[in-house]
Design a protein around this nucleic acid. Structure first.
Lengths: 350, 350
DNA sequence: TTGAAAGCGCTAACAG
DNA sequence: CTGTTAGCGCTTTCAA
């Protein structure tokens, strides 16, 4: 690893081609400025010979647009987000952008500092899934002139560009599907109710029950308390599911069906019940949310409500690019609707 | 989104604090250069008032070291890599670096272009898991003065810094564990044998059998052919596992135990067998490889050989930082050893 | 069609 | 202790 050969600069290329740096710049940066064919090829040859690559920082300092785009998600190990990220990455690459990834671990403070780092890095735009949104983030980003689109978490007091998901309808859909399939005593299971998404899911679920003159009894609401340790890994949700599973087991009579706010938790619950000889769906039905790939791989395969991670990431990225390209779609919003994915974890007792 | 207020520069700060840009630079870049306490606070106040953030590109162009480090992995949706990435990310953040992630989808061509982009971006260092290694990558990186450490995939003709894993021993360990537990007819299942890791796994497995005077019969080697479509997602491996499962089912007599080259494939095989009423471990034992978190979540939980993704990522990042910090650990290598994780997918018939 | 020169924002060598 | 100045590599007036 000798570093003596300083990287070739535009100056070196100019010297080798017997011309000025101006002309080199014109040729190599692909402008349509007229340059004699002969000189042009000479410059290209020289550049090749010297293995010249324009220095990004020079261009950027000069005022060129950065091709990096920032992405903040709660976790990258959670399969929901890793799929989403995969979509974002593909979309970025297709447009010659490169994503810079941060995970916030669902910590408000980390969310803030990620955004600050992204601003400092002068990224072209940002994609955000934040637990907490406030005016100061808004203004910081605006001040830096960085377009952003929110996704995954809805915020009532936000009116910019976003990929929204209809959590409320999802909650309703969950309840209705369960009722349709003959379940009477319904339960709801969730981790901390600290995110807007979960609150809406709950509201919808409850409202649908009310509409059907059914009641969501207090002791059929299983909510695990926030843990001290931070983190938002798949393992975390799974373990939370196991806790939730234990809570269910403590009941003398288990509910007919359980709706869970995410698939990884549902899987944790299933595992816990299975190991205590409660078989799904024979003894209890369980309905997940997210439609993580993994839900399909377990036995019994998890019936769930799909919030397409891939589609969300794809659309969010596309929307941001539109903003970047000046198509004035600023503040555009897209609402994604839930789709029920039937598999094997719901007992049908019509 | 109005962009009229150009960002405050060092000049603005200097003006506001009635001093020179030099002094501002000295104060704000945290040098220990002596500046009168009074002026110092004035400058800090001014910077704060103007919400001044030093322009990264200016610093970088000037010769400052970039704080980005590049990471190339086959896939980010594969839980093995997403855990690994999580570790890398944590390690980077702790040292004020930020990782730039690329997924190569196991395509040699993509691997190349990722590395080129990283070089262009002048990252401080790179972490690589490559299917293919060759001298030209080596020299390109060296020429750019970018330190690198390889992980996950071993390459015989490589002698630089790396986090290695003992795949050969893992193969042996697999065979020996299976034999110990009373299994006689052993089988091996894998996707395309295009990676060094898989080849070594196979060699070790076979050698151990030979040592025990056992034979790995031709039709107990299940290898799925490379598919047209690229990609290296978890889903891909799972589906490959299902194919493999079907191949096993076609046999009139299924083997006693099956060793699989990664957990996601093992899970696919299990699912396929389960749905055809072959119960694991009652009818066949199955041993995975990787120790992905999901293995623990399924029923029955997957017994596997752990190649700690988190540890690998952590060590790779640490090693790279050491190189970056000039600790002359260049070319240092670390060899990680396999650990067997006993769960429920192996029948014990001593 | 070509080139000289300014300047993006920053740090460091040098001079007071 | 403080300030002036050069220059990192690049693009873009402006002038020839």
């Amino acid at each position: 690893m000798q570093e003596k050969k300083k990287k070739a600069t535009i100056k070196d290329v100019a010297a080798r081609a017997n011309t000025s740096i101006t002309t080199v710049s014109r040729v190599l940066s692909g402008s349509d400025y007229p340059v004699k064919e002969e000189l042009k090829t000479a410059i290209i040859d020289a550049a090749e010979a010297l293995n010249y690559k324009p220095n990004l920082f020079g261009q950027l300092l000069r005022g060129g647009r950065n091709r990096q785009i920032g992405v903040v998600v709660p976790s990258i190990t959670n399969p929901f987000y890793s799929q989403l990220i995969a979509a974002v990455q593909k979309e970025c690459m297709d447009n010659d952008y490169v994503p810079i990834l941060y995970s916030s671990h669902n910590q408000v403070q980390t969310e803030r500092s990620c955004i600050n780092m992204l601003i400092q890095a002068q990224v072209a735009g940002v994609l955000l899934s934040l637990i907490h949104w406030d005016e100061s983030i808004n203004s910081a980003l605006d001040e830096a002139g960085i377009p952003y689109v929110l996704f995954d978490q809805p915020h009532d007091d936000y009116d910019g560009a976003a990929i929204d998901f209809d959590f409320y309808s999802s909650g309703r859909l969950a309840a209705e599907y369960l009722i349709e399939n003959g379940h009477r005593e319904l339960a709801f299971a969730s981790g901390p109710m600290d995110r807007p998404s979960r609150k809406k899911l709950f509201e919808g679920f409850q409202d649908a029950l009310t509409d059907h003159h059914m009641e969501l009894k207090e002791d059929n609401i299983f909510v695990s308390t926030a843990s001290k340790k931070s983190g938002a890994s798949a393992m975390k949700d799974y373990q939370r599911g196991q806790e939730l599973g234990s809570m269910v087991l403590e009941r003398k009579r288990i509910p007919d069906a359980l709706f869970t706010v995410n698939d990884m938790m549902a899987i944790g619950i299933m595992k816990q019940l299975e190991t205590h000889q409660i078989h799904i769906p024979r003894d209890m039905s369980i309905l997940g949310f997210d439609n993580v790939e993994f839900g399909e791989m377990i036995v019994p395969a998890l019936t769930t409500i799909s919030q397409s991670a891939y589609r969300t990431g794809e659309l969010a990225a596309k929307l941001l690019m539109e903003c970047l390209d000046g198509v004035h779609t600023w503040k555009k919003r897209v609402m994604l609707e839930p789709v029920l994915v039937e598999r094997e974890s719901i007992r049908k007792t019509q």
